[in-house]
Design a protein around this nucleic acid. Structure first.
Length: 255
DNA sequence: ATGTCACCTGGTAGGTGA
């Protein structure tokens, strides 16, 4: 099966690109982040017409996530159970025997801010939930915009970014904590081009200069690791005329 | 050359978040 994650930075703006991309890639399931739509504005009709089942969890202006799939997803969960959160950041569902969890991890703004503290609390809650979720769903994929660059090789200028948001020891510690639950970073299972990023700032001509970060990830559980055959970042949509600042990441898993 | 984009409110710009 083929799974993908994409931070679309406004589904209202990116819907035509998303439909084109879905038609070209034909994934089995996709998680989206930053839909930036209230639930009543979700473009269900357009997606249904294109042959996609959708589940969504939105809010006004910020955040918002969705799960699209060829077959209907089962047992939908929105946000982290037991974690009180006003922000719509998680959607989970089961597709073809695989538990798919899509997350829009908090940005965190800067170390020492309230938003950073919120990010740390959110990551604590996510880890606790995933521990039990893994026990009940051994075939599990966690993917999304993590807003964490796990290692220096995931950063175009690791010296300039040292200790900055996405690159702090605390955030990287949380990433390793998720890995420690029994996940593998699917992207690093395979040889990859050097300077592979999933996000490039809209500013500073960052995409043209390939100045980016790898902050969008796909983690596969131990039970799925051996069957994982491909993981890649698709830079093509970032070359569109009016692109998201993120590129989609895809994984292929054999049953 | 810190050179953007998307959203909101409330008004034809400014603020916020990323």
């Amino acid at each position: 099966m083929k799974l993908a994650t994409w931070n679309v930075n406004s589904l209202a703006v990116r819907l035509p690109q998303l439909l084109d991309w879905l038609a070209a890639e034909q994934p089995d399931a996709v998680v989206l982040q930053e839909t930036k739509l209230t639930d009543d504005k979700f473009p269900q009709a357009e997606l249904t017409a294109a042959g996609w089942h959708s589940s969504w969890h939105g809010q006004k202006t910020y955040n918002g996530v969705a799960l699209l799939s060829r077959e209907p997803a089962q047992d939908i969960v929105k946000n982290i159970p037991g974690h009180d959160d006003q922000q719509a950041r998680v959607i989970a569902g089961s597709v073809a025997g695989v538990r798919v969890i899509g997350g829009y991890f908090p940005n965190g703004q800067a170390p020492g801010t309230d938003k950073f503290a919120y990010k740390m609390r959110w990551l604590d809650a996510l880890r606790g939930w995933l521990q039990s979720e893994l026990a009940s769903h051994p075939r599990l994929v966690l993917m999304g915009d993590f807003n964490i660059a796990p290692e220096d090789r995931d950063v175009f200028d690791p010296v300039a970014w040292a200790g900055q948001i996405h690159c702090t020891d605390e955030e990287r510690g949380h990433f390793r904590g998720l890995i420690g639950l029994g996940f593998t970073d699917a992207f690093r299972l395979f040889e990859q081009p050097p300077k592979s990023w999933s996000w490039w700032d809209y500013r500073n001509l960052a995409f043209r200069k390939n100045q980016g970060l790898r902050i969008d990830h796909i983690l596969v559980s131990e039970a799925l690791k051996a069957g994982t055959t491909v993981c890649r970042i698709d830079k093509l949509p970032r070359k569109n005329e009016r692109p998201s600042d993120h590129a989609p990441v895809l994984v292929e898993i054999t049953p």
